[in-house]
């Protein structure tokens, strides 16, 4: 049913990614699909990486660990943005399209009052992506 499952991961708050990855890995084993981890960073130095190249390498490392631990094939795609705080939804959407994935599994928070001001990334992706989006809470 699915061949490639995209999972946006937040290397800045890696603890928030766990459940989505669990779900995605289960689905991947079930459908014999591969996982594609998408990471978005700033062009400028950040807490995780001093430049986008270092970020890409750390994402790869993270992907390798996940592949070993979960026994599924994992590829990674790192993307840099000039203003990630605002543009993350747009970058994520194009990264998903570019990856050729046929399903997105992503972590989202429980909606709160703040979502009336700026909505969740999962919600944005679900309403704009051409493929199925599985939002994990």
């Amino acid at each position: 049913m699915y061949q490639k499952i995209a999972v946006p991961v937040d290397l800045f708050h890696v603890e928030h990614t766990g459940r989505a990855l669990d779900v995605a890995a289960d689905l991947a084993r079930h459908y014999s699909a591969s996982l594609h981890l998408i990471g978005i960073t700033a062009e400028t130095p950040t807490a995780v990486a001093r430049n986008p190249q270092e970020f890409a390498r750390k994402l790869e490392e993270f992907g390798r660990k996940q592949a070993d631990a979960r026994g599924v094939a994992v590829s990674t795609g790192a993307h840099a943005s000039t203003d990630p705080a605002v543009d993350i939804d747009k970058v994520l959407l194009s990264a998903v399209a570019e990856s050729g994935a046929d399903l997105v599994v992503m972590q989202s928070h429980v909606p709160g009052i703040g979502d009336y001001l700026w909505g969740s990334h999962g919600g944005h992706l679900a309403s704009h992506a051409e493929i199925s989006v599985f939002v994990v809470r």
């Binding site: 800045f12 130095p45 705080a85």
Partner: peptide
Amino acid sequence: GGKINAPVSQR
């Protein structure tokens, strides 16, 4: 502290 990806509410 030099982060450009701080929450939007700050700007």
